[in-house]
Design a protein around this nucleic acid. Structure first.
Lengths: 125, 125
DNA sequence: CTATTTAGATTACATTTGTAATCGATATTA
DNA sequence: TAATATCGATTACAAATGTAATCTAAATAG
């Protein structure tokens, strides 16, 4: 498990989110699920699915005439990979510097902060 | 202030970090500062500076024969913009979900957690 | 003053990404 | 069965990105 996660482009992430929500799904089901979330032609969505297949981020079942697609990586695995490269690129690699900025900016509500405190405490002890 | 920050590509971020560290700088100074950090030919670095100029992320002073370059946006401004789009794309838009994952993964040291607690406390009260 | 180096301007070229349309085979409908 | 709708495969095409090289004018070294 856990081979290097391939790069997932921005629009491809939208597709992945749909598949993580529920899979396997046909291309048409993905199209429906994207109603209101993204404004792409069905052909575009199909292209994105094809690219994700080519990248081996999405698998396909060809048993039926109409293919079904499913993720080959867990969402949190991909999130971690993205987060890591994001933090490295933007914040010198540490979550803490990002967090410092958010806290200073008051980007967290009192409720958020309390929840975070609780999570920290639960973990620490 | 605070016009929409243009997109800054991954390799362009390396250049920006150098300029935020210290500016204005000539292209050659940027090249030197990148020694060991990136493995680009001087021409490549020059191209990246040109693109950043075209995007209006970097300004240039042409008074001297050898130009000097400087950032047109503050680092934290760009960080916030990137963070926002990153969180939206990957974690549904909230820092908290990202944090939850990191805490669960034990990606934060005890020391980190203590520092975060202190920051939170200072902010909260 | 001529040859060479250097800096900026212009051009190059493959890959990735965004956003589809067309083509061809099969299934479905009339 | 003939016309049509549908799905997958293939092709399209511009912008952004990664990664430079060439061209040209000016400065500097001999």
């Amino acid at each position: 498990m856990a081979k290097e996660v391939p790069n997932i482009a921005e629009s491809e992430w939208e597709i992945m989110k749909i598949l993580w929500e529920n899979s396997p799904r046909t291309a048409n089901e993905v199209v429906s699920a994207l109603q209101g979330k993204a404004d792409w032609k069905p052909k575009t969505i199909r292209t994105l699915l094809d690219r994700l297949m080519k990248k081996k981020v999405v698998g396909v079942n060809k048993e039926q005439r109409v293919y079904t697609f499913y993720p080959l990586y867990a969402e949190d695995e991909c999130q971690r990979a993205e987060a890591k490269s994001f933090l490295k690129r933007i914040y010198g690699g540490t979550l803490k510097s990002m967090l410092v900025q958010f806290i200073e900016d008051d980007a967290l509500s009192e409720k958020d902060m309390n929840e975070i405190r609780q999570m920290l405490d639960k973990k620490s002890k």
